[in-house]
C-alpha cells in the first residue's frame, strides 16, 4: 500500500515539476525575436531564419513587417535571393512607411539584379512613385543604369549613369560619355563573326579574339588531320580516307568554330566587366 502511495506521489511530483518547468522555460515571442536578432548579429543567418519564422508563426501580427524584413535580409545575406525577394515583397505589402517601402523596393530589385533577372528588376523599379526625394531618385537612377547595362541597352544605361551626377560634375559626365562612345568597349569581339571566320579558316576566330595559342592549335590540328586524309586518299582510297579521318576532322573543325564563339563571348564579357568597373570607379571617386 505504502509503495502504491509513494508511486502515485512521485508521479504527481513529476507532472507538477513538468508543468512548472514548462511555464518557466516557455519562450515568449519577444524572447524568440531577441534570440533571432542575436543570431542575426552573429551572422548565423540560417538559425536566425528558423527563429524568425517560428516567431512569425506564433505572432499575433504585431511585428509582422519587421519579421518579414529580417527573414528577407537573412536570406539575402546567404545569397538566397529568390526567397529574399519573396519576403521583401511581403514586408513591402505590410509596411505603411513610404521611405521604408522605397527601401524595400530597391532591396527586391537588387535581389533580381544579383540573380541576373534584369527584366523583373526593371518591373520592380516601375513601382516607384514619380515624386521621389533626391536620395531615392539618385539610387533609382543607379539601379536603372545597372539594369540596362545588364540588358545590353548601353545608350539607356549611359543616360541613367549621367543622371547620377549633378550639373557641377562636368568632368565625370565627360568621362562617362567617353567610355560609352567607344563601341569597342561593349561589342568587341563579335562572337558570330569569330565563328564565321573560324568556319572559313580554322583558328582564325580564336586569333581574332586574341587567343593566339588556341588559334594556332586549331589550325595545326585540323590542317594536320586534313593532310593525313589526303595522304590516305592518295596511297589507299578516298573511302579509306573518309572513314578514318573525316570524323576526327569534323570533330575538331566544328569544335574549333564553336570554341571561337565561346572565346569571343568570354573576351567580350571580360571587356564589358572592365568597362563597368571603370564607370563604377568614376562614381566612387566622385562621391569621395
Amino acid at each position: 500500500m505504502m509503495k502504491y502511495i509513494l508511486k502515485r506521489l512521485s508521479l504527481l511530483l513529476i507532472v507538477f515539476k513538468f508543468i512548472l518547468f514548462y511555464n518557466v522555460s516557455a519562450q515568449s515571442i519577444d524572447e524568440t525575436i531577441k534570440f533571432a536578432d542575436n543570431q542575426y548579429g552573429e551572422l548565423n543567418y540560417k538559425l536566425a531564419i528558423k527563429e524568425y519564422q517560428r516567431a512569425l508563426f506564433f505572432s499575433n501580427g504585431d511585428k509582422i513587417e519587421y519579421l518579414y524584413k529580417q527573414i528577407a535580409n537573412s536570406n539575402f545575406n546567404i545569397h538566397n535571393y529568390d526567397k529574399a525577394a519573396y519576403y521583401y515583397e511581403l514586408s513591402y505589402k505590410t509596411s505603411y512607411n513610404d521611405s521604408l517601402k522605397n527601401e524595400l523596393l530597391l532591396k527586391k530589385a537588387s535581389c533580381y539584379i544579383l540573380n541576373e533577372n534584369y527584366d523583373l528588376a526593371l518591373l520592380e523599379l516601375i513601382n516607384f512613385s514619380d515624386s521621389l526625394d533626391i536620395y531615392f531618385e539618385n539610387r533609382k537612377n543607379f539601379y536603372y543604369a545597372v539594369i540596362y547595362f545588364g540588358l545590353e541597352d548601353f545608350e539607356v544605361s549611359k543616360s541613367y549613369f549621367l543622371k547620377i551626377f549633378n550639373d557641377k560634375q562636368l568632368l565625370e559626365k565627360q568621362q562617362i560619355e567617353l567610355i560609352f562612345d567607344k563601341k569597342k568597349n561593349f561589342n568587341n569581339p563579335n562572337p558570330k563573326f569569330a565563328k564565321l571566320i573560324s568556319f572559313i579558316v580554322p583558328g582564325s576566330g580564336q586569333l581574332y579574339s586574341g587567343n593566339f595559342k588556341n588559334g594556332l592549335n586549331s589550325l595545326i590540328l585540323t590542317s594536320g588531320i586534313a593532310v593525313l586524309g589526303i595522304y590516305i586518299a592518295q596511297y589507299y582510297s578516298v573511302f579509306d580516307a573518309i572513314l578514318s579521318t573525316a570524323p576526327w576532322f569534323f570533330r575538331y573543325y566544328v569544335g574549333g568554330a564553336q570554341n571561337s564563339k565561346k572565346i569571343a563571348l568570354n573576351k567580350r564579357a571580360k571587356r564589358r566587366d572592365k568597362t563597368y568597373k571603370k564607370i563604377l570607379n568614376i562614381i566612387k571617386t566622385s562621391n569621395n
Binding site: S110, I113, L114, E116, Y135, N138, R139, F142, Y143, V146, F149, G150, I164, N266, K267, A269, K270, R272, D273, Y276, K277, L280, I283, K284, N287
Partner: peptide, 17 residues
Amino acid sequence: QTQNDIKLFENIYSTYQ
C-alpha cells in the same frame, strides 16, 4: 548609400571564365 550599392553590384558582370 550609393557606395553601398556600388559595392553590392561591383562584381555582377564578372561572369567570364
